[in-house]
């Protein structure tokens, strides 16, 4: 159980692929224009990550060390193809709006990174949990960034959710404020970079604050005899 906790903490916060490892930045920045796009790509990445980590972990004893990378890429590519065909069949609108970034999940370093760093060295269950948590961490960053940009850019949330979830999802669309003038910077790639920078800064400042609090809680060790100044 402690391993599960540790893996979750790593994936969701301490070693978050989006905020700390800064892997898979290309899709992260390119498709987070709306919350729906972010959710779609986040889920696709999560599925691929889960599948590839499990399979890589299963075959890890049989893969020769010298050619492991091409084999991992093959495994990942097959899962991406599956996800791509599924999205093409069931969420065609979203498939079209994500475009090239679905096939490009193959090159997402977050996925091959987990296969190489974790799944190829660990049994199936921890690998699956790791994939789930890393994927969730990535998904969360995508969602926050997508929500931020959609809100600033056009004042809505879940615009176009029906593309992903079917027609009933039209009711999910929230218009937070009405604006005739879209704030284009937030919707263009520069806005994604600025938003990403702000998110990373926020995470770092939270970490610093937590660290400071921990020091205070632990308290400093009182020394009986002080020679010279102690920093």
């Amino acid at each position: 159980m402690s391993q599960f906790k540790e893996l979750s903490l790593q994936g969701l916060w301490k070693n978050n692929p989006g905020l700390v490892q800064l892997l898979g930045l290309c899709p992260l920045l390119a498709v987070t224009g709306t919350l729906t796009n972010a959710l779609g790509l986040g889920l696709a990445t999560l599925l691929v990550l889960l599948g590839s980590n499990i399979v890589v972990s299963l075959v890890r004893q049989h893969v020769p060390n010298e050619i492991r990378i091409p084999i991992f890429v093959l495994i990942i590519a097959s899962f991406v193809t599956v996800v791509q065909l599924l999205m093409n069949a069931f969420t065609f609108g979203l498939y079209q709006s994500l475009g090239i970034f679905i096939p490009l999940i193959v090159t997402n370093c977050a996925i091959i990174g987990r296969a190489e760093a974790f799944a190829s060295k660990n049994p199936v269950l921890p690998s699956a949990i790791d994939a789930l948590m890393m994927g969730l961490g990535f998904l969360l960053v995508l969602l926050v960034l997508g929500g931020m940009r959609e809100l600033l850019g056009q004042g809505t949330l879940f615009d176009g959710a029906e593309l992903l979830l079917g027609d009933w999802a039209r009711v999910l669309r929230i218009e937070v404020f009405h604006s005739d003038n879209h704030f284009l910077l937030a919707m263009l790639p520069p806005g994604a970079f600025i938003g990403m920078g702000l998110l990373i800064a926020l995470k770092n400042s939270i970490d610093q604050r937590l660290a400071k609090r921990q020091i205070i809680e632990k308290g400093s060790i009182a020394r009986a005899r002080v020679t010279g100044s102690v920093q």
């Binding site: 003038n181 704030f183 284009l184 910077l185 937030a186 263009l188």
Partner: peptide
Amino acid sequence: VMLLISFPVQ
């Protein structure tokens, strides 16, 4: 420049 690319009309 930020304003120009964000709000070209205004």
